[in-house]
Amino acid sequence: MNKKVKTVLGPFILVVLLSISRYLFSSKMTFITEIAIYSLFVMGNNILYGYLGMVSFGQPFYLSIGAWTSAIFLAYIGHNPILAMLLGIAGGVITGFVLGPFFIRLRGDYFALINAALCAIGVFVFQKLLIGITRGEDGLWFRTQMSRVRLLDIRLPNNFFFFVMIIFFIVLVLYSHMNNSVLGSSFKALKVNERKMRFLGFDTFRIRWIGFILASALSSLSGSLYALNLGFVNPSLGETHRAAEVLVATLLGGSGTVYGPFFGALGFLGIKDLVSRWVTRWELVVGVITLIVMFRFSKGIWGGIRKVSLKIYDRDERSAGRCGRQRS
């Protein structure tokens, strides 16, 4: 029972805190919206990197699939932004479903690089090949095409903020549930000992495939929301440079955890925001932070928070007469 409550309560508290801070720092509303959207992207990458132990240098491709699907739908076909978002997710699921069987059988380094290649091909396709549809570098604008949706007119930034919060809450609850589910345990188990998983009778190929599809779906959802937020999409959204950013954010927050991606997005976008006031380009900062996190704080921000809270919790328990945790 306790865990079921926690699955909903954690995300609820987080979303409420975000909503409160939207009123405390009202000038930062778009920034908070962006953090939530970016968190979804990081959560997708976290399934690959944190849970399954696969590095991908091409996550922006899956992001751009969602963004372009929504954008093309809104610019040419329909007017309903919610439908556009659902189509974006569908695009991500289909992409993951189709590419999965080819990609996940590759070795770790090949997997990382074929995704990078895919990313480059994606930019090329959207920038040059489909220039008639996507308008290339100019970007595809569709803000005026979006229609009013009943209940919540998400064309207004304030409403869009709450729309994103609702989505973020739902996804976080599902993500938190996934972490506790047999699937989540299977992911983590697969990461450390695939052979044993097979000899417990699990079809590891399919589990990895499911993970790949989930990652792709989350990335494309994030891409769709990006598109709806900006009102236009251009090919730079899918650039390979961004693959590094999402990896760094995953590491920074704490990989393989439920709330790590949020803190990663918060930390990363926060640093980016601060640094970009002094430095126009911030590769140096990103690189240094990654190295520090990799070597010194492998558990990331969320891992650090949990460690501190565990210490307090442990002290209470120890005073109740329980042995301390073993270390080796």
């Binding site: 770790g108 380009r281 911030w282 690189g287 240094v288 990654t290």
Partner: peptide
């Protein structure tokens, strides 16, 4: 493991780009 070295060397690459920007500009 390979995943770790990949991310580490990639960070070095990013740092290298940063240093070049400081020395020679954009």
């Amino acid at each position: 493991e390979m995943m770790f070295t990949m991310v580490v060397t990639f960070s070095v690459f990013l740092i290298g780009i940063g240093i070049i920007q400081y020395i020679w500009g954009l």
